[in-house]
């Protein structure tokens, strides 16, 4: 027996509302644009981004050969930006999945079990939330060494607790609802109940958190790379900025500085827009207000 009374919206409604939301639409478009770049990187008039070019094309401005100019090894900035989007999106998504998964698991268990388990888990969460995030990331990255996967691990370690806390409070409020009581009376065990009734209702929170995590990861990667703690052998937007800053030629090569900054900013904006839209839609009353 399933009780659907509390399910939020039908999927169709959700998407309809999403696309009529101006921010949602804009964010989604920008996001699709970057996905497109990342997927079709090899055929977007790119050259392999790591391979150095010829000596007479070092630090040339944008022209017909290199749309966005070249860097200090005569590598094509356009190709670096395009392939860099893959790195940013991949580490963004991987980190989001890891943190949301861990956070949800901890939140579910804590919220559902309650008592001493809850107390211990929440103290751990509190502890992690108390730590200053960027300094912790920097310290971990410095200690663990520069590699793209270490960056993922570092950001994950620092970021999972907020999801755990949100999921837990969601679970707590769901637990009080009559329909959960009802199934419990019918003798469903914890696991079944968690999977079939609680989890689906936690999805919106997970989704919003996931979106937030992607933005935070892209941001954190760029900061760590800028500070010289990124993976210098992988071309990402952050390492592009780092190399530019290190080269000493930043002031005279705007075509090299601006593209990665513009990309970081627009991708983060797109996710912020997505997040705002989803939050708005999931806010009780929005549906009625918009007349669905």
């Amino acid at each position: 027996m399933r009780v659907n009374s509390y399910k939020l919206q039908k999927a169709g409604d959700f998407w309809a509302m999403f696309f009529s939301h101006r921010m949602g639409r804009t964010g989604f478009l920008i996001f699709c644009f970057f996905i497109f770049l990342a997927l079709f990187a090899p055929i977007l008039r790119t050259v392999p981004p790591e391979i150095s070019g010829s000596a007479d094309r070092i630090l040339t401005g944008p022209d017909g050969i290199s749309w966005l100019g070249t860097d200090d090894l005569a590598r094509d900035v356009w190709s670096q930006v395009i392939f860099g989007s893959r790195v940013s999106l991949i580490i963004g998504f991987v980190t989001a999945i890891i943190t949301v998964f861990t956070g949800t698991l901890v939140g579910l268990v804590a919220g559902f079990k309650g008592g001493i388990v809850d107390e211990i888990l929440m103290r751990i969460v509190d502890f992690f939330m108390m730590l200053p995030h960027l300094p912790l990331m920097i310290v971990l990255a410095a200690v663990m060494g520069a590699s793209i996967w270490n960056i993922v691990i570092v950001i994950s370690i620092v970021s999972w607790p907020s999801t755990a806390r949100l999921v837990r409070s969601q679970v707590l409020s769901l637990k009080e609802r009559p329909f959960v009581e009802a199934i419990r009376c019918l003798g469903a065990n914890d696991i079944t109940m968690m999977m079939s009734e609680i989890l689906p209702n936690v999805f919106p929170v997970m989704f919003a958190q996931g979106v937030l995590m992607v933005t935070e990861t892209i941001y954190a990667e760029s900061v760590l790379s800028f500070l010289g703690l990124g993976d210098p052998t992988t071309i990402s937007w952050g390492t592009m900025l780092h190399f530019c800053f290190e080269s000493g030629a930043m002031a005279r090569s705007p075509w090299w500085v601006f593209p990665p900054i513009v990309c970081i900013v627009s991708l983060i904006i797109s996710f912020s827009f997505l997040g705002t839209a989803v939050t708005d839609i999931l806010t009780p009353g929005y549906k009625e207000k918009m007349g669905y």
């Binding site: 900061v223 002031a251 900054i261 970081i264 900013v265 983060i268 904006i269 827009f273």
Partner: peptide
């Protein structure tokens, strides 16, 4: 404000420096 919120402060710093100190 959402745009500002999305720009890393180090990038801001660099832009400000290039503009107002250089």
């Amino acid at each position: 404000s959402m745009t500002l919120y999305s720009v890393p402060s180090f990038a801001f710093g660099i832009l400000l420096m290039l503009a107002f100190a250089y």
